[in-house]
Design a protein around this nucleic acid. Structure first.
Length: 407
DNA sequence: TCTGGGGTCCTAGGACCC
DNA sequence: TCTGGGGTCCTAGGACCC
């Protein structure tokens, strides 16, 4: 069984925990837009992403507080300490939520429900926050069960009863279905997961494209082979700023760009990562978006190199915004060295390299299932997985099957 | 309703190679 | 010389998540 644990209204709950005056009071984090809203505010229709001005019209008297990211990071660490103490296999999804594989822990720790109860109690006592937990046989069911359990709840979907849980749910409750997908399904008369199951795979693929169509079809029949795995490597590092205005001068925009590049490359160096693709993100005056990217021959985390690429992209994109100006600039470095695959291994430069590869293949089978190995690829490369110690590394990708690829 | 900041994954076309 | 299948990499954009 898989647990999905998720701290309720995380940022807002930390603020309420740390400031007694906010307890029991509608609390909104973030000036400008709502980054998080306490349940008191949600009851009045406030939700993440809306402007605080609108939120205050819906919920006059709400407290608006500025985010304190350092505090959230510290609380997140405490939360994950408890998660990892609960199960050896923890996969974090964000600061405040994670999957925990509790299969095989019955002898030591009790049933999944007992484990979940204890987890919730420990977080409440030691961190002072409410954590909702969903229990299911798959990631998707566990995740959707925790949403259904909120606030401050626990919901187990026992093995065998998954379809009873899934089928009545409206499609927009499905993890991975957002506004656009929901609208498309609704247009075709599909409103619930059960109707999705009845529609059939070909119909869903025709509506949504091969990847989304197949995934949702599988999910509606409770098929979700994804394992819980720890140690996923970050695939990109980015920073953006909405401090630019349509009236900003070229020099002001360049100053923002320099600050963003510095922030990103600093973080990359701190983590010992280097990347090859520099992506410039722009939001124009009419709030439309554009991206421009450039792939370098070699991974880098050097400020000067990333900045040179970023400036080149900005200059080339100038015709886009010369007339009306910009409202956001962002820089992301992706294609991070050593992140191409599901698994990384260091090969000894001498000795039994074959054995190391065989071991890695076994691990991939375990993590991703046999299915995923039909087209496993072994890619050997000599590059810097770690900025400071270049070594030969190999990555083995859990290749999509021919069926997955639609070929 | 005039809109943060950080990520993930998928798609589609073109260049290029064998 | 022309045609074709099969593959990789790069670029740009879109959808979704917290």
């Amino acid at each position: 069984m898989i647990l999905h644990a998720d701290a309720d209204a995380f940022f807002a709950s930390v603020e309420q925990r740390d400031d007694p005056r906010l307890r029991g009071r509608a609390t909104i984090v973030g000036p400008g837009v709502v980054m998080a809203a306490s349940y008191e505010a949600r009851e009045r229709g406030v939700h993440g992403g809306m402007s605080t001005a609108r939120a205050l019209r819906l919920c006059p008297g709400a407290a608006v507080v500025a985010p304190r990211f350092d505090a959230y990071t510290a609380v997140s660490r405490e939360l994950f300490d408890i998660f990892r103490d609960t199960s050896p296999v923890v996969e974090g999804l964000s600061l405040e939520e994670a999957f925990l594989d509790v299969a095989g822990l019955e002898r030591i720790s009790g049933t999944p429900r007992e484990i979940a109860r204890r987890l919730r109690r420990r977080v409440r006592e030691r961190v002072g926050l409410a954590v909702s937990v969903g229990i299911g046989t798959t990631k998707a069911v566990a995740k959707m069960a925790s949403s259904a359990a909120k606030p401050d709840g626990l919901l187990e979907v026992p093995r065998g009863s998954e379809l009873e849980f899934l089928h009545p749910l409206p499609v927009e409750k499905v993890w991975g279905v957002g506004r656009s997908t929901a609208e498309c399904l609704n247009r075709h008369g599909i409103r619930t997961v059960g109707e999705m199951a009845t529609a059939g795979r070909e119909a869903l693929v025709a509506m949504l494209g091969p990847a989304r169509g197949r995934r949702l079809h599988a999910l509606s029949h409770n098929r979700d082979p994804r394992r819980v795995h720890r140690g996923r490597r970050r695939r990109s590092v980015g920073a953006q700023s909405a401090s630019v205005r349509p009236t900003s001068t070229a020099a002001e925009i360049d100053a923002v760009l320099v600050r963003l590049v510095d922030r990103v490359t600093r973080r990359m160096r701190a983590k010992g990562r280097a990347g090859r693709t520099v992506i410039l993100r722009l939001r124009l005056a009419d709030f439309s978006r554009a991206t421009r990217s450039r792939t370098l021959p070699r991974p880098t985390a050097a400020t000067a190199q990333v900045l040179a690429a970023a400036r080149g992209l900005l200059a080339a994109a100038r015709p886009l915004y010369a007339e009306d100006g910009l409202t956001l600039v962002g820089i992301t470095v992706s294609n991070l060295a050593g992140a191409e695959s599901g698994i990384q291994l260091e090969l000894p430069l001498e000795g039994d390299r074959r054995a190391a590869v065989d071991e890695a293949v076994d691990e991939i089978r375990e993590r991703f299932g046999n299915e995923a190995m039909t087209r496993g690829a072994l890619v050997g490369r000599r590059d810097a997985t770690d900025l400071y110690s270049a070594s030969e590394s190999a990555s083995i990708s859990p290749g999509p099957t021919a069926e997955h690829r639609g070929r």
